[in-house]
Computed example of a mutant assay.
Amino acid sequence: MLNTEAPSISHTELDLYPTTQLVDVLIDDQLNAIRAVSLAAAQIAAAVDAATPRILAGGRLVYVGAGTSGRLGVLDGVELLPTFSWPNERALSLLAGGKQAMFVAVEGAEDDAAQGAKEIMQLALTANDVVILIAASGATPYVLGALQAARATEALTIGFANNPGAPVTLQAEIGITLDTGSEVISGSTRLKAGTSQKVALNSFSSALMVRLHKVYGNLMVDVKPTNVKLLRRTVSLTMHATGRDEAYCRRILEECDFHVKIAILAIVNNISTSSASEKLQACGGDLRLALHKTST
């Protein structure tokens, strides 16, 4: 029996606990998800280093999963646009059962290996693409079908699973095991197995975006201001990085369509936003490099 499916030997009378104790137990067990991700940190770092040159060469991120794992992949991908201005067409998600499976379980969809392979082949992958395959069991047929099809294209494959020795981690180019063990509610991998996947995917994609110069220091300088809250954030980020007042930073941001990196470069080096845009582009979007070049 898989570790994630095995009945837990702890809390065998969970249904008899008073509510306060019940909630405490469920929360406490989630701490094991963080420990599992921490133990896989070296493999996550290796995945980031392997993915970076491919993505810099124009590759795409492709998330593949079923059920909770698939939904977490979708979530990680769609959040890259507002956080890092990462284009949606370069963060794709394949979810067993299609878009409707985000909201309603599609019976039998995860068992269709041929469909996983078919959907991968429809993407016309290249060697620069990075395919992220997520399965708590590590043996979901839909995910394994997609994995085999992706391997045939020479795309980079990264497998995440919550059981040691799982097919998805053994067959992917880089395997990441998040060994969370049995669940407090036996077999419910939406609990700490899902939490570990969320943390691991978040860490992988965030680290990748840092390597792609989407972050300056620890500032989210490539934010896409898609709402009022994020517009305010562009102003506060620019103020923090430059030390200038709100009115001045807002005026410069308005000149460059609220592109924080351009505004910072223009303000710090006292140049026009158009010049700042050109210099930033010449430096591959690396704000730190652009600041250094314009100050020497």
Rank of each mutant, 00 (worst) to 15 (best):
A193K: 03
G194L: 04
T195S: 13
T195W: 00
S196M: 13
S196C: 11
S196E: 11
Q197C: 07
K198W: 10
K198E: 11
K198R: 12
V199R: 03
A200R: 02
A200E: 06
A200V: 12
A200I: 09
L201Y: 05
L201C: 12
N202P: 09
N202H: 14
S203H: 09
S203C: 13
S203T: 15
S203K: 10
F204Y: 12
F204R: 09
S205G: 15
S206A: 13
S206F: 14
A207I: 07
A207F: 10
A207Q: 09
L208K: 02
L208D: 02
L208C: 06
M209Q: 08
M209V: 05
V210I: 14
V210P: 04
V210N: 08
R211H: 15
L212K: 07
L212H: 09
H213N: 15
K214H: 04
K214D: 03
K214F: 03
K214R: 11
V215Y: 08
V215A: 11
Y216W: 12
Y216H: 09
G217I: 03
N218E: 14
N218Y: 10
L219M: 09
L219Y: 03
M220A: 10
M220I: 07
M220D: 10
V221S: 01
V223K: 00
V223D: 00
V223A: 03
K224A: 15
K224L: 13
K224V: 15
K224R: 12
P225M: 01
P225I: 02
P225A: 04
T226I: 11
T226Y: 05
T226D: 10
N227L: 05
N227A: 07
V228S: 12
K229H: 14
L230V: 08
L231D: 12
R232V: 06
R233F: 03
R233G: 00
T234F: 01
T234R: 00
T234G: 00
T234M: 01
V235C: 03
V235L: 02
S236T: 11
S236M: 11
S236Y: 03
S236P: 01
S236Q: 13
S236G: 05
L237T: 00
T238V: 09
M239D: 08
H240Y: 14
A241M: 07
